[in-house]
């Protein structure tokens, strides 16, 4: 029972295993010495249950701070429930969900979310990979460059949003002033739906591209030099090596980046919230850039319709799971034919 070598040799790598003690052989005199047997049993229990005990705090806190709110939100979504109202909440079953699916404002918010998500995630991941490839070359002052791309991520999101709101101001914003200087009509960054999405996506991309680039860069550096050298010997050019070696071997990382971007992108809240001049949850004068989370916030916390807000939260949760799953499959396919598994 103490020899693990065979397992390691045959298995898929080192699995986390409990510490192994010098235990008496399992066969033989258990009943001989009562104290020894007691200690033996304790040891066994130790080996068996300690690992669970060590990881328990995470799961306890997760159950408290993650799972409970999740389930409680599901419970809340079945009620017509106004926060702090004088009258009691009323059980309406799936009523909130039925209402949600015929709610034009929800579909509008969903469409906005996807539009902003596509405008941010797609360019973001592509630019991040290219940026990582550049950072991976023999640059002068490499560390400074690598630190540099992370700077937008370090800056306060609120400060960024204020600066970008100023840049994208309709009447006095820097971008419109520049556009007018070269004779282009000013863009209605707030009023026009698509323009507002571009403005918000720019904010997101500014912040996250560098961060993702560094993650991809880390993965790039883990690619064994020998593979590249072998390809070089075989006469493969820079592009060929990038598409046939680098990209396929980055696949797990790119999947990670895409999935986290999906989760973040579909939950986008702060940027549109701070982009809104009326600072409520409306997302523009007519919901031009109201996202699903913004709509949830408006319903749950501004209108204090907690039940409806919870229903929105759950639908969004399911949508994110589905989209993240689809993205996972697509990325696996796109990111080429690297070693399977």
């Amino acid at each position: 029972m103490t020899s693990d070598t065979t397992r390691i040799a045959s298995g898929r790598g080192l699995e986390p295993r409990p510490p192994v003690r010098d235990l008496p052989p399992t066969t033989g005199d258990d009943g001989g010495d009562p104290s020894r047997s007691w200690r033996y049993r304790l040891s066994r229990l130790d080996v068996k249950f300690s690992p669970y005990l060590f990881i328990a705090p995470f799961f306890l806190i997760f159950a408290l701070a993650g799972l409970f709110p999740l389930l409680y939100t599901a419970y809340t979504s079945l009620y017509e429930w106004t926060l702090g109202a004088n009258d009691d909440a009323e059980f309406i079953g799936l009523g909130n969900y039925v209402e949600l699916f015929s709610d034009a404002q929800f579909w509008n918010a969903l469409l906005n979310t996807f539009s902003i998500f596509l405008l941010s995630t797609v360019p973001q991941v592509i630019v991040a990979v290219l940026l990582a490839a550049l950072l991976n070359t023999a640059l002068r002052g490499r560390v400074a460059w690598r630190m540099g791309v992370l700077l937008p991520y370090v800056a306060s999101l609120v400060a960024l949003a204020i600066i970008f709101s100023n840049l994208f101001g309709e009447q006095y914003g820097l971008i419109n002033t520049l556009l007018q200087a070269i004779g282009v009509d000013p863009v209605q960054w707030q009023a026009d739906r698509f323009s507002s999405h571009v403005a918000i996506a720019t904010m997101v991309n500014w912040r996250w591209t560098g961060y993702n680039a560094l993650i991809v860069l880390a993965a790039m550096q883990a690619i064994p030099r020998e593979v590249h050298e072998a390809a070089l010997v075989d006469g493969a050019g820079v592009m060929r090596r990038f598409f046939s070696i680098t990209l396929p071997m980055l696949r797990p990382t790119i999947i990670f980046v895409v999935v986290t971007s999906t989760i973040g992108g579909l939950q986008i809240f702060t940027e549109p919230k701070l982009f809104d001049p009326n600072s409520g949850g409306g997302g523009g004068s007519d919901g031009q850039y109201q996202t699903v989370v913004l709509y949830m916030y408006q319903q749950g916390f501004l209108n204090q319709d907690v039940g409806y807000g919870s229903a929105i939260a759950w639908v969004l949760f399911l949508i994110i799971i589905v989209i993240a799953g689809i993205n996972f499959l697509i990325t696996r396919r796109i990111a080429g034919t690297g070693e399977a598994k």
Binding site: Q188, A191, N278, G280, G282, G284, S285, D286, N303
Partner: peptide
């Protein structure tokens, strides 16, 4: 109960929409 919101969100937004071309 919702007078404050009607003023600051609903009507303020609608008037802004008119100012933006509605």
């Amino acid at each position: 109960p919702a007078s404050g919101q009607l003023q600051d969100e609903v009507f303020a937004n609608a008037l802004q929409a008119v100012e933006q071309g509605k």
